[in-house]
């Protein structure tokens, strides 16, 4: 018997798929049977799904209604405005990130501000453009708009609630805590119903919000409570030394908050905020219950076309795909933001 040489090379690892299969899926007889049963089942579902998509499904309902599903009743001859809006919206993260890189974050914020004014002008018209009423903004356009508008507007409210919850003034603290806990303990659909039917009663007589505004108000009220808890997490993770150092420098209380506390706290919770935006984006499908023609609502309307009655599967599969694409893109973008930060 010969001893192996001391400097023997490491045993070659066989990485062939056959070996991988044998090690992971067929390593015992019962695992082998399980693999065969489950594999067969998955294959069958997969094949049946593909066959349906390729042969049985009638995709005309999508191809003929595509503009309707995406931008709804927005006038076709004005659609160039929507392309500009899209361009401005894409520019938003780019400019903020670019501004940060060049150590001049102000540029990004100024752009963001101008872009928002530009977007609302392009969408609504007036000042030289043909006015387009908000009842014509439907489909994916309305879904995106409702989600982003309610996040942007809920943000200041959420930060205030977070600060209020940590305040030393008892009334303020208790009020903020009650609001946050109350809203977080209610389902979104309940809050939307309240906004739809109670809000008009609470507002002074000559104030009339249209249905879209009421729905967005409901989303804001809901979202603010969740944002408040997220931001509070950021505030509490800030080391005490930061504030003490700011005090030593002689900064006043508002300046300490504005220059030292908030920028750091908020930066820390950006990924969580994006996550919340994604879930809000999906929640906007509830607006269909209030007969608002966002993506889900317009899908229901399309399904009422006599030519396409009963084509539920095609339409819901398609809008599901749209929801997924948008959410997946957003989460990828937010991951990039984290990496580069």
């Amino acid at each position: 018997m010969k001893n192996p040489p001391a400097s023997a090379p490491p045993p070659a690892i066989d990485r062939s798929p056959v070996r991988w299969l044998r090690q992971n899926l067929f390593n015992t007889w019962y695992n082998g049977i399980l693999t065969l049963i489950l594999g067969g089942f998955i294959l069958q579902v997969f094949v049946a799904g593909l066959t349906w998509i390729a042969t049985k499904a009638r995709w005309a309902v999508i191809s003929e209604n595509l503009p309707l599903l995406l931008v709804g009743r927005y006038p076709a001859e004005q659609s160039w405005r929507l392309w500009l809006v899209l361009l401005l919206a894409i520019g938003l993260p780019v400019s903020i990130w670019g501004g940060k890189r060049r150590r001049s974050p102000g540029v990004g914020w100024i752009y963001a501000f101008c872009a928002m004014i530009g977007i609302s002008w392009l969408l609504g018209g007036g000042f030289g453009l043909v006015p387009v009423e908000n009842s014509l903004w439907n489909g994916l356009l309305l879904t995106l708009l409702a989600a982003s508008l309610s996040t942007v507007l809920a943000f200041p409210l959420g930060v205030l609630l977070a600060l209020g919850r940590q305040s030393s003034l008892p009334i303020l603290r208790i009020a903020c805590t009650i609001y946050i806990e109350l809203v977080r303990g209610l389902p979104l659909i309940g809050i939307l119903f309240m906004a739809q039917f109670l809000l008009p009663l609470l507002l002074p007589g000559d104030w009339r919000l249209d249905r879209l505004a009421r729905a967005i108000a409901g989303l804001i009220l809901f979202n603010a409570a969740y944002l408040a808890e997220t931001v509070r997490g950021g505030l509490q993770s800030l080391p005490r030394g930061q504030i003490e150092a700011a005090k030593v420098l002689g900064l006043s209380a508002p300046l300490r908050l504005w220059l030292i506390v908030l920028p750091q706290a908020i930066r820390m919770v950006i990924p969580a905020i994006v996550g919340q935006f994604i879930s809000l984006f999906k929640d906007t499908s509830l607006l269909a219950l209030f007969a608002l023609a966002e993506l889900t609502g317009i899908a229901r309307s399309v399904l009422a076309q006599p030519d396409f009655i009963g084509r539920y599967a095609e339409v819901y599969l398609f809008i599901g795909l749209i929801y997924w694409i948008v959410c997946f893109t957003l989460s990828q973008v937010s991951r990039q933001l984290e990496v580069r930060d």
């Binding site: 507007l153 200041p156 409210l157 930060v159 205030l160 600060l163 209020g164 940590q166 305040s167 030393s168 003034l169 303020l172 800030l238 005490r240 504030i243 005090k247 209380a253 508002p254 300490r256 908050l257 504005w258």
Partner: peptide
């Protein structure tokens, strides 16, 4: 963290934002 700081900051921002959102 100085708690009072949050109180004043919150009140100032509250006033600002409530007018804005109205």
């Amino acid at each position: 963290m100085h708690p009072r700081l949050f109180g004043w900051g919150a009140i100032a921002l509250l006033a600002l934002c409530s007018t804005a959102s109205c």
